[in-house]
Simulated assay, not measured.
Amino acid sequence: MPSRHAIVTFHDPPVPPGASPWVPGSGPSPDVRVVEPDPAWPDQFADLAATVARVLGWRALVIEHVGSTAVPGLPAKPVIDIDLVVADPGDERSYVPALEDAGFELRVREPWWFEHRLLRPRADAGLPACHLHVFGPDSPEVVRHRLFRDWLRGNPDECARYAEAKRAAADAATAAGEHAMQYNARKERVVREIYARMFAATGLTDESAGDDGSVGA
C-alpha cells in the first residue's frame, strides 16, 4: 500500500533525455471524441477482464475498471480503462507475451513513472477498445484511480462538473486538430480541483495541503 503522501502527490516526471514513452510505431491517439454513456461499457470491461485473468492467472493481482467508462452516466471516450496490477511491471517477459497471444500489443513503456506499461488490443483481435494500464502493487496511481472513480460515482455534482470539462476539452482539441494527450491537458485543471476536494473529504489531506492535493511540509 503506498503512503498517504504518495497518494496525494501528483508525480509528473519529465521523459528522460533520449527516451520516449512510445514503443516504435506507436503514438498518441488522434481520436478525442467524447460520447454519451453506453450501458455496454461494464460488460465490455467484464469481457476484457476475463480475457486478462484467463491468460495471466494468479499473475494478475488486480484487474480494476477505472476511468470515465466505469462511472454510470458519465460521458467518455469509448475506450475502457483498466488498471492491471502485477508483481513487477518491469519484468515484461512475465506477462506481455501472454497478453500478446490474447490479442493485445504493448504501446507505452514508462519505467521512470512507476514502471507503467500500456497495452491496447490489436485491430484484428476482436476485443473492445481499451487502455490496459499495468502498474506494480505499490503504485499510488492505482489507489488514486479507484478513489476518483468512486468519488464521481458518489457525487453527482462532481460528475456533472467533470462531464462539462470533458466535453469542452474534446470540442477544443478537435477544433485545434489535437491528439489525446493534449485533450487530457485541457481538462487537467478541473481534474486536479476535483482530486483536491476528494483528498480533503477522505481525510487524506488537511489544511496544509496545496491546491494540487500535495501535502505541505
Rank of each mutant, 00 (worst) to 15 (best):
E110H: 07
G73V: 14
E115M: 06
H133T: 01
R109P: 00
A53S: 13
S208I: 03
T69L: 06
E115L: 09
A125Y: 02
L48V: 08
D124T: 02
V215D: 15
S139E: 07
P2D: 02
I80Y: 11
R54M: 03
Y95C: 10
P37Y: 05
S68C: 12
A196I: 07
A165G: 02
E207R: 02
R189C: 03
R167T: 02
G177I: 05
R186D: 10
A170I: 08
P2L: 04
M1C: 07
E141I: 12
E193H: 08
L61T: 00
A60Q: 10
A209E: 02
P17L: 13
R149F: 07
R117W: 04
L106C: 03
V96T: 05
D12P: 15
Q44M: 11
Y95E: 04
A175F: 03
R197N: 09
A200F: 15
D211V: 13
D101M: 15
A60E: 10
V35D: 14
E158S: 03
E193P: 06
E207V: 01
T202N: 15
L204C: 05
F45Q: 07
D91G: 08
L106F: 06
V32M: 10
H145Q: 11
A123I: 13
V86C: 12
A40D: 14
T51Q: 01
L147W: 09
V142D: 08
F148L: 13
V190I: 12
L118H: 05
V108H: 03
I80M: 11
Y95P: 06
G67T: 07
V86Y: 08
G136H: 04
D91S: 14
H179P: 03
V55K: 08
V190A: 10
G103H: 05
L99V: 04
F199E: 09
F104H: 00
P42H: 14
E188D: 15
V35C: 10
P97R: 01
D83W: 08
T174D: 14
Y95H: 08
A217P: 15
M1L: 11
D150T: 04
P14Y: 07
V143W: 04
G213D: 09
P78F: 06
A176V: 10
P97A: 03
A170R: 04
A76R: 10
P121W: 04
A176W: 10
D212M: 08
W58G: 14
A53M: 07
R93Y: 13
S3M: 04
V215A: 12
W41V: 09
R120S: 02
P75R: 01
S29R: 07
A123D: 14
A19M: 06
R122K: 09
S214L: 10
D124C: 00
Y95K: 01
G210M: 13
C130Y: 02
Q44F: 07
F135R: 00
T205N: 03
A185C: 09
L74Q: 09
A129V: 05
I80K: 06
G18M: 12
W58I: 15
K166I: 01
D138N: 02
S68I: 13
I82Y: 04
F148W: 06
A185Y: 07
A196H: 12
